[in-house]
Simulated assay, not measured.
Amino acid sequence: MSQNKIHQYKKLSKLAIRLRDDLNSQDFVLLYAYNGTGKTRLSMEFKDRGKKQLGQADTLYFNAFTEDLFSWENDLANNSERYLKINANSSFFNGLRQLALEPRISNYLSRYANFDYQIDYDNWRIIFSKGDTSHIKVSRGEENIFIWCIFLAICEVTLDDDQAYQWVRYLYIDDPISSLDDNNAIAVASDLAKLLKRGRSRVKTVISSHHGLFFNIMYNELKKHPCNQYFLHKNGEESYTLQKTNDTPFFHHVALLSELKKVSDSGNINTYHFNMLRSILEKTSKFFGFDDFSACIYGIEDEVLYARALNLLSHGDYSIYQPVEMGPDNKALFTSILEAFLTKYRFELPQLLAENTRQQPSA
């Protein structure tokens, strides 16, 4: 694996500027980042940067705020007239009524779900049905995929240069598949890539995700076009590192191991680090087709002790946001297990989190 330069940023606003600079020469930017890194806030910083520079919006985005443009009326009194309300004040819906997007929405929805819908433009509400039953309450996953289909339909008319969305220069898509199974994740990624490649001369796109499968598919679909891929990591409250991963699209597991190696070497090991180590072993066992994660340390001295320790210590209710330092014995055990695993599986660990990195924080 080639070592790519690490860029450090003290603020998300500076990172947003970096992404916009990338899109001067690239059609796409892909970001892999864990939940809690600040992906949604970064998408809003990116969006706000356009308003500050141009005095008007230039980014059509999909993120948690997009989903918040819809809310349920559950008819608690009669339990019969349920519908999804639309916040019509958002520019997101500029062309929804005039452009008659239902055929485009339905085209996508039929690939992912088996319910019907009707948009009541007079009252700005959506009524769902299945068979002869109307005003049904769809699941959260079905709701999210329906909203995603609206976004895809709007992307289509945007890329067709419709007047209602000519203000869009960028698309910013953050974690569109948070409630989907892997089959739908593959379908969504494939459909999105096909759409974006068709319209790459019209708009530039940033996609961020914590979903490894989705990220990998997007990488493989877009890598033949001008496209930068990054691993985004958060250090502390307001410090971020950006590592290019063009040669290693599934880089996040290596970065996680790098973090565990760093804390092991420093001795600053917290209880939740056992959960992280267990997660790595689980993923490795699936990759090799093992039935149990303990097979990853089979044949290692003290393998039974290590397996029992990982089972026990990874089941605690440990929060990354309220770290608790391990006792000396557990620290030593953690370090022994990690070293044994890294000795058996010789990962090339980048200095992603090294405190003595030569790169200076970007302004």
Rank of each mutant, 00 (worst) to 15 (best):
L152K: 12
I269G: 04
T133D: 11
L84N: 06
I186F: 11
I173K: 13
V324I: 10
N220D: 15
Q26N: 13
P103V: 11
N89I: 12
L76H: 12
L349V: 07
E67Q: 13
W167A: 07
E102G: 10
R308Q: 12
H233A: 13
I105L: 11
L109Q: 13
C155H: 11
F146E: 10
L96M: 15
R346Y: 09
L30N: 11
Q8R: 03
I337N: 01
W72P: 08
Y34V: 04
Y9A: 01
I6K: 04
L313T: 00
F251H: 09
N94F: 15
A153L: 05
K47E: 13
E325G: 03
Y108D: 11
S208P: 06
M276Q: 08
K47M: 05
Y219F: 12
K234P: 04
H225Y: 14
S178N: 06
I173Y: 12
L54S: 12
Q26W: 09
G131P: 11
L281Y: 00
F334A: 02
P249C: 03
S139M: 10
L60S: 14
Q359W: 04
Y321F: 12
N4G: 04
K283P: 01
F115D: 11
Y117T: 04
L99N: 15
S209R: 08
G267Q: 03
E282P: 00
S139E: 12
I6F: 00
R111E: 08
K224R: 09
K39V: 02
N89K: 13
R169S: 08
K223M: 09
Q359N: 08
R358P: 00
R49C: 05
F290E: 01
S139L: 10
R49D: 09
E221M: 06
Y306F: 09
I207Q: 07
F288S: 00
E259N: 10
D75L: 01
H233T: 11
I177D: 15
A295C: 02
L213S: 04
S110Q: 12
N74E: 15
R202A: 07
S90E: 15
A255D: 02
V157M: 12
F92L: 14
F146I: 12
G212C: 09
L23C: 05
Y61H: 15
E45W: 08
N311P: 00
N24P: 03
N78C: 03
E238S: 14
E301A: 06
L15W: 00
F334Y: 00
D182I: 13
I147D: 14
A295Y: 10
N107A: 14
L310P: 00
F128Q: 10
T133I: 15
S179D: 07
K194F: 09
K85R: 13
V203Q: 02
G131T: 08
H252W: 02
L333K: 00
D292M: 04
L31P: 05
F93R: 10
A57Y: 14
Y170V: 11
